[in-house]
Design a binder for these strands. Structure first.
Length: 285
DNA sequence: TAAGGTGAGGCTGTATCCAT
DNA sequence: ATGGATACAGCCTCACCTTA
């Protein structure tokens, strides 16, 4: 588990994914939260739910009233065994999911209270505080389950969880091998399923095609290397798993909105790429 | 109901070329 | 050397179907 405060930049930087589940609470200010093609306006008290390794996202601050968040990220195993149903809010199809819980809803207020308790508990580090943190995490996830329940549970959580669990070896394979020219066949082999079944599983469970998920990993890595290194675009394209410069330029420009070179130029002016939302004042539990 | 096969159509990677 | 455009073969996705 990690918890930390973060103030997003006032300009749009690249979206990222990470392998932990994440809950974010806007402590103050205004801004925007981008999840792929979705954009949410953010105000104090809003809560955001992010799944693991699939949906790219990034927060941006209003220049006049910069936003400040506290982000809690955790591995599914942090909930303990036999509590898989509490992961349901994080097992969603991004095209159908509302990542924001508006501040005026009771669930957002409950989560706000719990997140603040979480911060206080960690900072105080009283005896056996780790158990208190685990308890607060269970409460947080329970509030989320109750909030999303009517839409997310629909009486068949075990099937949804099983499918999500079935996908994990495939997602892990993609994370480990996206720099190589992997295909649906390779991912299918990692899942011990047919190509057909693998493609169904990804699109049905996540609402995102296999190809798109691999592409997200490659583009994110390419943006990082463009911003943080002086390596030529050709080298970066190949290092990130693109089979050619042409496909790299095409997908980069389509997705990011500017050419790779332009992105490097702008990121140099910004002096920032993207930061792990929990990287500032990060507290490792 | 889950797993998986098939085929059409769209998309992607490759090869090649040109511009800077 | 690097950035970018384009045509085309092959792969991927999707819808629909069959099988167990």
């Amino acid at each position: 588990m990690h918890i930390g405060e973060h103030t997003p930049s006032t300009y749009a930087v690249s979206q990222h994914t990470h392998k932990e589940l994440e809950i974010g609470l806007c402590l103050e200010g205004k801004g925007w939260f981008y999840f792929g093609q979705k954009t949410y306006e953010v105000k104090q008290g809003d809560v955001f739910v992010v799944n693991a390794g699939v949906e790219p996202h990034i927060a941006q601050s209003d220049p006049v009233h910069p936003s400040k968040y506290v982000f809690l990220s955790f591995e599914p195993s942090a909930l303990g065994p036999d509590r898989q149903e509490l992961l349901l809010p994080f097992v969603y199809r991004s095209d159908r999911f509302q990542n924001r819980i508006p501040a005026e809803l009771p669930a957002a207020q409950q989560i706000g209270t719990l997140m603040r308790q979480f911060m206080v508990e960690y900072r105080s580090k009283e005896e056996a505080y780790i158990y208190m943190l685990q308890g607060l995490l269970l409460q947080l996830c329970t509030v989320l389950v109750r909030h999303y329940g009517p839409n997310a549970l629909h009486g068949d959580w075990s099937r949804a969880m099983r499918r999500y669990g079935d996908l994990q070896p495939g997602l892990a394979f993609i994370r480990d091998h996206f720099r190589e020219p992997i295909t649906a066949k390779d991912v299918a082999a990692a899942l011990s399923l047919s190509i057909s079944r693998t493609l169904h599983l990804f699109s049905d469970t996540l609402g995102t095609g296999l190809k798109q998920i691999i592409l997200q990993h490659r583009l994110h890595e390419a943006m990082r290397l463009l911003a943080e290194t002086d390596r030529p675009a050709t080298e970066i394209a190949l290092a990130c798993g693109f089979q050619s410069l042409a496909s790299f330029y095409r997908k980069f420009t389509e997705t990011v909105g500017v050419s790779p070179l332009e992105f490097r130029r702008r990121s140099a002016h910004m002096a920032v790429f993207e930061k792990n939302p929990a990287s500032e004042e990060k507290l490792k539990l």
